[in-house]
C-alpha cells in the first residue's frame, strides 16, 4: 500500500467525514438531553460547558477546518456574544432568544467589517491577526466603563430551580452548529469553502469569489461562537473580560476541533466530548497534575492520529492500516 493511500485512509473521507461518526455524534446529543434529569448541578455545568465548547469548536471548524483559514481569535466572537447578553440584561431585557439573535447580528457585522481587511492575509499571518483582534478587543472592553471595565458586570439569570433552561439553550445552540455544519458541508457553500482551502487560485479560476466565501464562512463561524457566548453570559450570571475572552475559550475549541478531526462534521463534537470529559475527570482525580496529563494526551493523540480521532470510525483495514500510517508523516 502506497503512502498516499495510507494517508487517504486516515484522513480523507469526503466533505462531511465518516457518516457513522455523524450518526454517533447525533445519538450522543440525544443522550445528552437527559443530563438535567439527574438533578446534579455540577454535572449539568460540566456538560453545558462541553456543549458550549462544542459550539465554539464548530465555529472554528468552519473557518479553520473547512476554509483553511486558521483563526486564533474566535474567542473575540464568543466574548462579543456574551457582552450582547450582558448589555441587554443591563437594559432590562432578559430573553435568551433576544440574546442569541442580537449576538448573531452583531457578530455577523463584526466579522464582515474585520474580515474584509484580515481575510486578505494568509496562513500564519491571518492566524496572528486574528489573535491580535481577540487580545485587543479584550483590552478595549477592560477599559470601557459602560461594559463594567475590568471589574465586570452582573448578568441577570433565572432562579436555581429553572437553571436547566440554560442547559437546553446551550444544547440547542450546539445542535444548530452540528446540523448547520452538516448542511453547509453538503451544499454548494461547503464545496466553495473546501476549494478555497485546497487552492485559492484554482478556486477563483472555477468561478469562486474567494473574498465573498471566506467572509461568509467567517461570519457564520462568528455567529456560532457568538450564540454560545450569548447563552453563557446569563448562565454564568457574571461577566468580565477575563471570563469572556479567556485563553481557555480561545484554545480549547481549536484543540477540540483538530483532535476530533478538522474539516469534518462529527470531529468537533467528538473532540469536545473527549477533551472536556478527560479534562474534568483528570481534574477530579489528579487535581494537581491534570493539565500535565492533558498536555501528554494531546501530544500522544497528535503523534498517533494526526488527522483527528473521527477517522477511526471510517478506518478500512483496522489496526494494520493505522500502524502503517504511523510513519507516513515522518520527514
Amino acid at each position: 500500500m502506497t503512502t498516499t493511500a495510507v494517508l487517504r485512509r486516515i484522513g480523507l473521507g469526503g466533505i462531511t467525514g465518516s457518516p457513522i461518526a455523524i450518526a454517533v455524534a447525533l445519538a450522543l446529543m440525544v443522550v445528552l438531553l437527559a443530563v438535567p434529569f439527574g438533578h446534579n448541578g455540577y454535572l449539568e455545568i460540566v456538560f453545558r460547558n462541553i456543549l458550549m465548547y462544542a459550539a465554539m469548536a464548530y465555529g472554528w471548524n468552519l473557518i479553520g477546518g473547512y476554509t483553511g483559514y486558521v483563526s486564533f481569535g474566535q474567542v473575540a466572537f464568543f466574548g462579543a456574544g456574551a457582552y450582547c447578553s450582558a448589555v441587554l440584561s443591563a437594559h432590562g431585557i432578559d430573553n435568551l432568544f433576544a440574546d442569541v439573535a442580537l449576538a448573531c447580528v452583531v457578530n455577523a457585522l463584526f466579522a464582515i467589517v474585520v474580515g474584509l481587511p484580515v481575510l486578505r492575509l494568509k496562513g500564519h499571518y491571518f492566524a496572528i491577526a486574528t489573535l491580535g483582534i481577540a487580545l485587543a478587543l479584550s483590552d478595549i472592553v477592560a477599559n470601557l466603563d459602560a461594559l463594567g471595565a475590568s471589574s465586570g458586570l452582573a448578568v441577570h439569570h433565572v432562579d436555581e430551580a429553572h437553571f436547566y433552561v440554560y442547559y437546553y439553550a446551550m444544547w440547542l445552540v450546539a445542535l444548530a452548529t452540528i446540523l448547520g455544519t452538516y448542511f453547509i458541508a453538503r451544499s454548494k457553500l461547503g464545496f466553495a469553502f473546501v476549494a478555497i482551502r485546497e487552492n485559492e487560485e484554482a478556486a477563483a479560476v472555477l468561478g469562486i469569489d474567494a473574498t465573498r466565501y471566506k467572509i461568509t464562512a467567517w461570519a457564520i463561524s462568528a455567529m456560532m461562537a457568538g450564540a454560545a457566548g450569548a447563552v453563557f453570559a446569563p448562565a454564568n450570571g457574571f461577566l468580565d473580560p477575563s471570563i469572556a475572552f479567556s485563553v481557555d475559550s480561545n484554545v480549547f475549541p481549536i484543540v477540540m476541533a483538530i483532535l476530533g478531526g478538522a474539516g469534518t462534521v462529527a470531529g468537533p463534537f467528538i473532540g469536545a466530548l473527549i477533551l472536556a470529559g478527560a479534562n474534568e475527570l483528570l481534574q477530579r482525580y489528579f487535581i494537581k497534575i491534570h493539565t500535565l496529563f492533558f498536555g501528554a494526551m494531546i501530544v500522544i493523540v497528535v503523534l498517533i492520529l494526526p488527522r483527528g480521532l473521527v477517522w477511526l470510525f471510517g478506518l478500512k483495514g483496522g489496526a494494520r492500516t493505522w500502524l502503517k500510517s504511523l510513519t507516513a508523516y515522518k520527514a
Partner: peptide, 22 residues
Amino acid sequence: KPFASLTVRENVAVGAMYGRYG
C-alpha cells in the same frame, strides 16, 4: 491544480457549481 482532498467527481462538480451556469 486539483483540489487534492476532494474526489475526482467533486473536483469537476465544483466547476459545475460555480461556473457560468452554476
